[in-house]
Design a protein around this nucleic acid. Structure first.
Lengths: 151, 151
DNA sequence: TGCTTATTGAGAATGACTCCGAAGACTGGT
DNA sequence: ACCAGTCTTCGGAGTCATTCTCAATAAGCA
């Protein structure tokens, strides 16, 4: 959950026999420069990079999103049915959780250090090397509760 | 998060203009009778019901799993990439969270009331009607840490 | 009992994601 | 610097969980 520099990413990749590529560096920097609270899908990222004049193919994006999530650099979130979104994985002061409305997908981010600590303790006790810890709350937001439209 | 009886389910459905059906009752009872720690995918449930002599079509199962999850009767979990699983949503003494290995998908269930309370408090403060609260921890299990096979 | 309309079932359609094979480009060693 | 080995990229084809469609069925209500 460290703040990755391109060279730190390269070192960690090489350590495992993988390679640094311009595409991987571009993806890392893009996520790091995103405003807080932004969650990108693979397709979103593909479009964004095209607009910025550094296009990367969709299959490469999918491959590297998964790779970086498994390295603990990115967090994989499912904030709406059927579309995975990613954000940079940050340590304690920025680390947050999500509260999601199952009807309109309105999402609220919140912080809770004691939850984070409880998660870390549990993972530790089981000998797991922790990559991500997210409290996921599903509910119905105030405006959807008032809405007449069912489900 | 109550222990649903078929008639309670019927009452809640009717209240919203929906209907009780034999298929919905069968699905509810099946989940209630499952041993703790069992997570079924749509396909799993379809096969199980066929074996038990009360087959329900796969599309109906998908429809009702989603419906019951949105009512707060079932919890929707993604314990492995690309396959959603469901379990009955139980209140405090049985309520639990999941610790998952991203490599082998080995899953450990654990309980933590303070996390549950923190979640309820957060939802309440935002005016959300809470349906489910799950702490999801991704990591690498001890045996995969020792494994030579990367990622 | 009969009417209205939600629900079911079976198969077709969708779409996010993965796989494939050839071309390109990192790394480590010389 | 160069080379060999092999990891990675790209684009399109393929996969598979999930959703949609629509005719037939059956809850729920008067």
């Amino acid at each position: 959950m460290a703040a990755y520099t391109p060279s730190a990413l390269k070192a960690e990749l090489n350590e495992r026999g993988w390679r640094m590529t311009p595409q991987r560096e571009t993806m890392l920097k893009t996520f790091q420069n995103l405003p807080e609270g932004t969650h990108l899908s693979a397709e979103d990222l593909c479009e964004l990079l095209s607009q910025e004049g550094e296009p990367i193919s969709l299959s490469t994006i999918y491959r590297n999103l998964k790779l970086m999530a498994r390295m603990g650099i990115l967090r994989e979130l499912e904030l709406a049915e059927g579309q995975k979104r990613y954000e940079i994985n940050q340590p304690a002061p920025h680390h947050h959780h999500h509260l999601i409305c199952v009807r309109c997908n309105k999402t609220i981010e919140f912080k809770n250090d004691s939850v984070l600590k409880a998660g870390a303790k549990t993972a530790d006790r089981s000998g797991y090397h922790i990559l991500d810890c997210q409290l996921l709350i599903h509910g119905i937001c105030p405006s959807c509760q008032r809405s007449i439209v069912p489900i």
